[in-house]
Amino acid sequence: MGWQIAAASAVVVVLAGLTTLALSPLLGRGRPEHGGGPDRDDEILRSTLLVAGVIGVAIAGVAGFLIARRAVAPLGEALARQRRFVADAGHELRTPLTVMHTRAQLIARRMEPQDPALPAMRQLLDDSRVLGEIVDELLASAVLTADPGRGEPIEVRALLDEIARSMAVLAQAREVQISVAGPPGVWVTGSRVALRRALAALVDNALGHTPPGGWVQLAVDVRGEHVVLAVTDSGEGLAGLDPAELTRRFARGPRAADGPGGRRFGLGLALVQEVASAHGGTLTLGPAPTGGARAELVLPIRS
């Protein structure tokens, strides 16, 4: 790309020079004679250089646009190939995973309740179901990235209620209160599976960093043309950490999550950010008014 810019710059300089030589007689010919001399020659030269400069800037702008367009084209092709690969891989994996899950179900049904292998078989069923959901999420993500408008309508308050119910057992085990706030009837467009996973990851992290007796709240709010899905906790907060730094993969605080303090996100927050981007939204992380942490998933509202 460097040589292309250098070549374009050289062409602009040459064209500007040629334009100066070509326009000098024309500019001088159209003016009435008031006597020759250095002043008149300087005026003609300034006018000629001004015209040549304008033409040179225009040519440079066009050349820069064409070069930039050519440089970005391979990136767009690479992203398109990546989306096709994800979609093709998802389609290829979906059928064998469905067959495996069905076979595991049949085996589990034929096993006696007292069979010692039954718990392992039930765990296999859960694992195969999770793999199927991951494949569905990959397919949905590929579709949403290519065309964000192809998602399904999602009522976000119902989604938050569902997540709170599924995480209630974990919250009780950690002696943390979990609640949901916000109006019903607010809709977004996207992948329900992907959004559920993203919000569940935020809730799981909030529960892991909230001490016994604390609380975690899921809330929905409407701000203009956007819906804000917030997860707020009364835990240790960010302890001066940079929120932007925590969105990197495998980012962690100064201490591990299972130590005396410090937040650790691993892949979780980076994946949540990718889900937000696929839905045309953003993820923000900051301190909560109560001293804990607050994560906000901001998505376009469904019109």
Results as ranks from 00 to 15, higher is better:
226 H>T: 13
217 Q>A: 12
88 D>W: 13
236 E>N: 02
51 V>M: 05
236 E>C: 03
217 Q>K: 12
209 H>S: 00
235 G>F: 11
277 S>H: 14
47 S>H: 01
211 P>Y: 00
35 G>Y: 06
46 R>P: 01
73 A>D: 03
232 T>Y: 00
13 V>A: 13
208 G>K: 12
187 W>Q: 12
249 R>F: 08
270 A>D: 01
282 T>R: 07
129 R>K: 13
184 P>Y: 05
240 G>L: 00
175 E>I: 00
280 G>L: 09
186 V>Y: 05
208 G>L: 08
186 V>M: 13
236 E>Q: 15
104 A>W: 02
21 L>N: 06
272 V>L: 06
22 A>V: 08
179 S>V: 07
216 V>P: 00
36 G>P: 08
207 L>R: 01
247 T>V: 10
23 L>S: 13
278 A>Q: 14
128 S>P: 01
178 I>R: 00
67 I>R: 08
265 F>A: 09
32 P>T: 09
283 L>D: 10
26 L>Y: 01
126 D>Q: 11
176 V>M: 00
250 F>P: 02
34 H>R: 09
93 L>K: 07
38 P>Y: 04
73 A>K: 03
293 A>Y: 03
56 G>I: 04
1 M>W: 08
174 R>H: 04
258 D>Q: 15
81 R>D: 06
230 A>C: 06
228 V>G: 01
180 V>T: 12
71 A>L: 02
163 I>L: 06
50 L>T: 15
244 A>Q: 14
29 R>K: 14
204 D>R: 11
227 V>H: 01
257 A>M: 05
96 P>R: 07
9 S>H: 00
151 G>N: 02
161 D>G: 12
177 Q>N: 09
246 L>I: 14
208 G>W: 07
201 A>N: 11
201 A>M: 12
85 F>E: 11
173 A>Y: 00
219 A>N: 08
111 M>F: 13
17 G>D: 11
88 D>Y: 07
28 G>L: 01
56 G>D: 13
104 A>S: 15
293 A>T: 15
77 E>C: 04
142 A>D: 09
283 L>H: 09
40 R>T: 11
118 L>K: 15
297 L>K: 07
254 P>N: 06
72 V>C: 01
189 T>N: 14
198 A>E: 10
15 L>R: 02
182 G>P: 10
193 V>Y: 01
284 T>K: 05
156 V>F: 03
283 L>W: 06
3 W>Y: 08
220 V>M: 03
225 E>H: 08
214 G>H: 00
41 D>A: 14
124 L>G: 08
118 L>C: 12
107 I>R: 14
168 A>R: 02
146 A>M: 05
181 A>C: 02
245 E>T: 05
54 V>Y: 11
92 E>H: 09
169 V>G: 06
188 V>K: 03
145 T>W: 09
97 L>S: 03
48 T>M: 12
106 L>F: 07
8 A>P: 00
64 G>E: 04
166 S>T: 08
143 V>T: 15
241 L>M: 10
103 R>V: 09
267 L>P: 03
190 G>N: 06
284 T>R: 14
58 A>I: 12
78 A>W: 01
59 I>S: 05
161 D>H: 04
120 A>W: 10
100 M>I: 10
206 A>S: 10
34 H>P: 05
141 S>E: 12
63 A>L: 13
71 A>D: 02
40 R>L: 10
293 A>Q: 10
176 V>I: 03
